[in-house]
Simulated scan of single mutants.
Amino acid sequence: MVEAFLKDFFGADLVLGTEISTYKGRATGFVRSPGVLVGKNKANALHKAFPNTRPEIGLGDRHTDIPFLSMCQEGYLVPPKPEVRAVTGDKLLKPIIFHDGRLQGHSCPCLVVYYAFWALGVRVTVKGTPPPPAKKSIGQSGVLFVCSHRTLLDPIFLSTALGRPIAAVTYSVSRLSEIISPIKTVRLSRDRAADASMIKKLLEEGDLAICPEGTTCREPFLLRFSALFAELTDQIVPVAMVNRMSMFHGTTARGWKGMDPFYFFMNPSPAYEVTFLSKLPQELTCSSGKLAMRWLITYSG
């Protein structure tokens, strides 16, 4: 967290600090060798990084940093009660925005949420050409937007890119996520027949978003996903979702997914990129005789 912040906003080339050990991608709570970087450990880490160079300036405290400061060409002790002045914005490489107002911004109506995100420092990039909304007056079925799954916010940013709210089916998300969601969410029952009937009814009402992977993934590939949606309609538009996070990762595979929006919006400059791919040709849909699994192999490959 500290390293990303210092490199992005202060232009630091190298950051040395206490590291937390991990096991299979999870923090253990133990500190990696050589331990907490204070006192001699701090001086040793500095000597290891710069064996033949003395740092020009060192800043530390009078209790633990004497060994470190003695290695620097100039050493300064932090006084017991320092007078701290905030760094002005013109001295930073990028603007920094830390506030929780973004959670209120994503609850705005979809017609203005794009501008709310822009004002709050959240960038939304839209690529490709989305299809127009379905015309129920002529019996036109809604479009099924099939999205890659990065965070629980995917359907919200999809609605932002479209400029209109669309419903989304969900997979066992928390009640908190449903409460703060500005769009309609419908839970799947995990019963194939019941879910198929529900999705068909939702498509009769309008466009629908679905993330068939079933769980979020921050890696640059798709997880194995259910092919049920491919059997229910021939109006399918794949959507590639990419999110940009630097300090906090709003992506939970296991755990309390309701925290995903909080962690995503805590980033200094969060961003989403929504790419509308070409609508699936009629000859590649199940209505023309293609098997759902064959569609998955052909189109996602």
Rank of each mutant, 00 (worst) to 15 (best):
A227L: 07
M259P: 01
P131W: 10
H249V: 11
F225S: 09
S269F: 07
L277C: 13
G17V: 04
L203S: 02
P51A: 07
Y263Q: 05
S137Q: 11
S246M: 06
R254C: 07
D234Y: 08
A230S: 11
Y263I: 02
L232H: 04
P82K: 11
N44T: 00
S137T: 09
E19N: 13
E273T: 12
P79H: 06
S181R: 09
P109Q: 00
C72W: 14
F264Q: 03
P67F: 08
G101F: 08
T233A: 03
I236V: 10
V38E: 13
T64P: 03
R85V: 06
S181G: 07
G105Q: 06
P82N: 03
P261C: 06
R190Y: 03
V31I: 14
E213N: 12
E219K: 14
E74H: 15
A271W: 04
P51Y: 02
K7R: 15
K91W: 04
D260I: 04
Y114E: 08
V143W: 08
D195M: 02
Q282M: 08
C72E: 12
Q235L: 08
G142Q: 00
V112N: 07
C110D: 11
V242L: 05
G289S: 09
P130R: 15
G25R: 03
D13A: 05
P131H: 05
Q104F: 14
G101Y: 05
